[in-house]
Nucleic acid binder design. Structure first.
Lengths: 313, 313
DNA sequence: CACACATCATAAGTTTTGATGATGAGTCTT
DNA sequence: AAGACTCATCATCAAAACTTATGATGTGTG
């Protein structure tokens, strides 16, 4: 009684679009094909699975319970294809250079390009690949040998890295005309109930900020949530509140639309420079890593640039 | 510079198979197509993504770092298709009946069929769908309206159910010639270091069993792990050890190759009969539910068949 | 060294699948 | 009853997927 069925991806994609949009016509538009084409795909699929996926009620399609169960599985597959496409464009953007460096977004706009430029000045014929990404992606890339050197935040997800840890002290960014600019150092007490622009709740610094406020018995008034330091700054510029930022994002202070103050108690960002344990560093890689660590020593919190083992969590 | 790329699923499937098997020839066999066909798909994919996925070294394919990064994304998608196929066959096995009942495996061999037979005796022209599945799948099916009545174990994963809780007391099954058959009730002290056949460590009863042994300062000697009560029984029959089982599995006691004893402290299985909050029970559904709850009252631990709210975890 | 047997790539030809546009039937609105 | 929707069906055609046949290259063996 077992019979061959050949679920084709196109059919699942069609099915997915129909459930999502509610009608065949709209689904066809979403996929950029004609309505009869989609009708066919659906008919094929229903013939092959041998149960109804939709009740035809008064000319409309109403998903059966079976369809809803199936949809959950199909969802994973169809959405997954988007992820693959994204991965492909990420990989396409990587040029083949002699030295590959990836760093987390917040450090990628001002600091890293400047350092790389300085490094490349003495080496005119060397090609360097530099890319900005999320911390987890950077770790994946360095682990797989796609990039030689990565700069990202903790936590580390694998154990495949040589790790150089350093810590960056965060500061509070405020609009120029903010009343609290009169203080030299800001504390939770001073900032009690002040509108705050914060990172998503899963980010380290957010949790530490919240803890600092709780400790001081102050209220953290989280007005806007965002997920890139760079975005927070935009809101600060617009005067919507204050934000806790890393000094790299604050480099643009010169634009004169916001300023910054230290925060007490200090909140540090746990950052790391990683290289792959699996393959040894190239000569240029070594040279750049030395420059990077040396330079970070000037910015980072004292005594925090050192060799260290990866600590997960 | 952005150019159109049309990642076809078949190409990803090909890529996935090649990475998995290591050679094109083997991958072709796995997918059931010819080697040149696969070679073509790979060539297409490499042309479209515009970076090498494999180095051709001495006639063999060696994945590039890019390929390994891509593989992780592709993996999700391709494996997902298998899940969809599995879901489809699950759904195909469901017949269209007026009354749909699903129950967890352990209760599905003896008890439920017998009860359903009794119920159907008075109603000769009624079609009933009955299916045995894992607890989580049963919940999904009842939640989506695919089945009217489900019998499964806690924990409940949604809040979409009307819940009737009951508790089943487990017993220790032993081979007939086991020395411990001389006891009327078995305790952790008596069973200290006795070879045990146990459920996987994620199952409730396993954790409680372990706790009971720890409390008594006895050693739980887990000799075999399995994941279906029915399987445990097979090992007991073979004399490999004793096992903690629900009374439904023990119904076959008549076969004379094992026996059972109560265990102290009592270990109960948290079970529930669920129906969907979303749609009201049909008349037959109501009737069967009444019969089921009434009958469970005779088997279950006293005072434990009652209406209750779902409690998660 | 020559032979058998792997590997992957290419070419040409066939079958299957996907999509189109025209058409029709049903439902709801106005 | 017209018009704007829905979805299904048909004939048709192009693109994709697969086939067989063949060649180039590499490896291991007597």
């Amino acid at each position: 009684m077992m019979c061959e069925m050949s679920l084709r991806f196109r059919q699942l994609q069609a099915f997915h679009a129909i459930i999502e949009t509610g009608t065949v016509t709209a689904a066809a538009a979403q996929l950029g094909i004609s309505q009869p084409g989609l009708s066919n795909l659906l008919a094929q699929l229903e013939r092959e699975v041998r149960f109804r996926l939709f009740e035809r009620q008064r000319g409309r399609l109403v998903p059966t319970p079976e369809a809803e169960v199936l949809y959950r599985e199909v969802e994973t597959v169809v959405r997954g294809l988007d992820h693959v496409a994204q991965a492909v464009t990420d990989l396409q953007n990587k040029q083949a250079g002699q030295l590959q460096i990836a760093s987390q977004h917040s450090i990628s706009f001002g600091y890293m390009p400047r350092l790389i430029a300085r490094f490349a000045a003495d080496r005119p014929d060397m090609a360097i690949t530099f890319q900005s990404q999320y911390s987890s992606k950077i770790q994946e890339w360095v682990a797989s040998g796609l990039f030689e050197i990565g700069v990202c935040e903790r936590p580390l997800l694998h154990d495949a890295f040589n790790v150089h840890a350093f810590h960056i002290e965060t500061r509070i960014a405020l609009p120029l005309d903010h009343p609290l600019t009169v203080y030299d150092v800001l504390t939770p007490e001073i900032l009690d109930n002040t509108p705050f622009i914060v990172m998503g709740p899963d980010h380290m610094t957010h949790r530490r900020l919240r803890a600092a406020f709780a400790e001081a018995g102050a209220t953290l008034n989280a007005r806007v949530h965002s997920h890139l330091f760079r975005n927070l700054l935009g809101f600060v510029r617009e005067g919507m509140g204050v934000a806790l930022l890393d000094p790299f994002a604050l480099e643009e202070e010169g634009d004169g639309r916001f300023t910054s103050r230290p925060f007490a108690p200090r909140i540090l960002m746990d950052m790391v420079v990683i290289t792959s344990k699996a393959r040894p560093l190239s000569t240029v890689g070594r040279a750049f890593l030395d420059l990077l660590l040396d330079d970070l020593g000037k910015i980072a919190v004292k005594d925090s640039v050192r060799q260290a083992n990866p600590s997960n969590a």
